[in-house]
Simulated scan of single mutants.
Amino acid sequence: MATPDFIREIRASAGHQLLFLPGVSVVVFDDEGRVLLGRRVDSGEWSIIGGIPEPGEQPAETAVREVYEETAVRCVVERVVLVDALRPVTYPNGDRCQFMDICLKCRAVGGEARVNDDESLEVGWFPVDALPGLDEFALFRIKQAMTDEPTWFAPMTEQ
């Protein structure tokens, strides 16, 4: 995912220290029950769509914007799937981040899936029983989005 300008501005004074940032991941289904995936430029791996909210932007707005920016698919948000503080990551340049991921389930309402920016190598619709190799992050979110369970929260750590 491209680093938003406001994060670059923070990094100019914060250096590589750990930043706790919001993130939105999106599981988009079409009318046939297929899942929209993108093959990421940074890793070459297939995954669900996601990104960082702009300042003042609501998570649902982020989901709709990111899906369109990356895939040219229009979608509507149906529900919150999960909220999860992810493990901290260190990027090759030394920047450290920890994301609070809000995963949303969306339904496609228009557009044709195609690469629509420089963050994806490919995009496409996949039947849930024929997904390409996905990491646990994406698989868990797809699984949770397919259920009628309430929003999933990570177990609380003992204090």
Score class of each variant (00 low, 15 high):
Y68N: 11
Y91Q: 10
E122C: 06
A12L: 12
V83G: 11
T62W: 04
E149M: 10
G110H: 04
F99A: 15
D30R: 05
R79Y: 06
P88D: 05
L82F: 07
R74V: 08
Y91S: 09
S47L: 05
G51F: 02
V109K: 05
D129L: 01
T157S: 13
L131V: 01
R39I: 02
R107G: 07
E122W: 08
R8K: 15
M100V: 15
A60E: 15
T3E: 09
A138L: 03
Q98H: 04
G33W: 00
F99P: 13
R96D: 07
G111V: 04
F140N: 15
G124I: 05
L139N: 09
L86A: 11
L36G: 01
D31N: 13
P150D: 09
V27R: 06
D30V: 02
G23N: 12
P132Q: 02
C103I: 07
V81S: 02
L37I: 03
V109Q: 04
R114L: 00
I10C: 00
D101I: 10
V80H: 13
P88A: 04
P59S: 04
R79D: 03
L104S: 09
E70P: 10
E61A: 11
L104Y: 09
G23M: 14
F126V: 00
S13Y: 13
T71V: 02
M146P: 00
H16L: 11
I48G: 07
A108R: 04
F137N: 12
I7T: 00
L86V: 07
L36F: 02
S25M: 06
F137Y: 14
V83H: 11
G33D: 01
R96H: 07
N116C: 07
E66F: 03
I10H: 06
C97K: 14
Q58V: 14
R141M: 00
V81W: 02
Q144M: 13
A72K: 12
I10D: 10
R11M: 09
G44W: 03
E32A: 08
D84F: 13
I102Y: 10
A14K: 10
V73N: 06
H16C: 10
G110W: 03
S120A: 14
T147D: 06
M156H: 13
G94L: 04
T3N: 02
